[in-house]
């Protein structure tokens, strides 16, 4: 464990918590893409499938973190599609999730480190996570704005994988560890946030709201 990965995981936890708090406190999921949250839930379930296969006691923080990610993302989807369904902005959340899921699944079958079920599910989860934020960014471009709290959520969500890139550099250098598929997908994922990062740094930090076109 290194500082980059620690802060990356904390940033990821913060993003999940910020979004949950936003929806719970405002009792509304306006401006939130339900499809992105569904895709994240699929990512966690397919990546941490080992939790369901051979359940071992919660003997370490990693198992607890995996359970937190899965339960929090499923609960978020429940809030969006059931509890606060009336506030779900389905018209603007119109990016076709199939256009993300099918290529990720196909690519996972073509490019992977081992052709076995668990490994392909893990690879699918990594590829899907790289593009899972697109429906959310698409929704913001359709509505033309993002609530400040949603911007904080996106900043934390984007920072998590950006910090993981630093973690991978650290591990390559000091532990001579490399996970090529995760690194390539993580770089693609972080690049997708660049435009948002620019808007966040130049606007939200100064107390302004993100309004598109910038």
């Amino acid at each position: 464990m290194n500082i980059f990965r620690l802060f990356g995981d904390l940033s990821h936890l913060a993003a999940i918590a910020i979004l949950l708090l936003k929806i719970w406190k405002t009792r509304s999921c306006a401006g939130v893409s339900g499809k992105t949250q569904l895709l994240f839930a699929v990512c966690f379930i397919t990546r941490y499938i080992d939790l369901f296969l051979h359940f071992v006691s919660l003997y370490n923080t990693e198992k607890v973190m995996k359970l937190i990610y899965i339960s929090a993302s499923v609960f978020t989807c429940y809030l969006i599609f059931f509890k606060f369904k009336a506030t779900y902005d389905g018209n603007h959340d119109s990016m076709r999730a199939e256009f993300l899921i099918v290529p990720a699944a196909g690519l996972a079958c073509l490019i992977n480190t081992k052709f076995d079920a668990i490994e392909i599910l893990w690879t699918f989860s990594i590829y899907l996570e790289a593009v899972a934020i697109l429906p959310q960014l698409f929704l913001i471009s359709k509505t033309g704005e993002a609530e400040t709290i949603t911007s904080h959520y996106l900043f934390a969500q984007g920072s998590y994988r950006a910090l993981y890139i630093l973690n991978w550099i650290y591990r390559y250098h000091y532990e001579s560890h490399v996970d090529t598929i995760a690194i390539v997908a993580g770089v693609v994922q972080t690049i997708l946030y660049c435009d948002f990062f620019y808007l966040y740094i130049t606007k939200v930090v100064k107390g302004q709201k993100i309004v598109l076109p910038a």
Binding site: M65, K66, D179, A182
Partner: peptide
Amino acid sequence: PPTQSGHDEL
């Protein structure tokens, strides 16, 4: 050379 060991990250 760096080794491609298992996936030990979240």
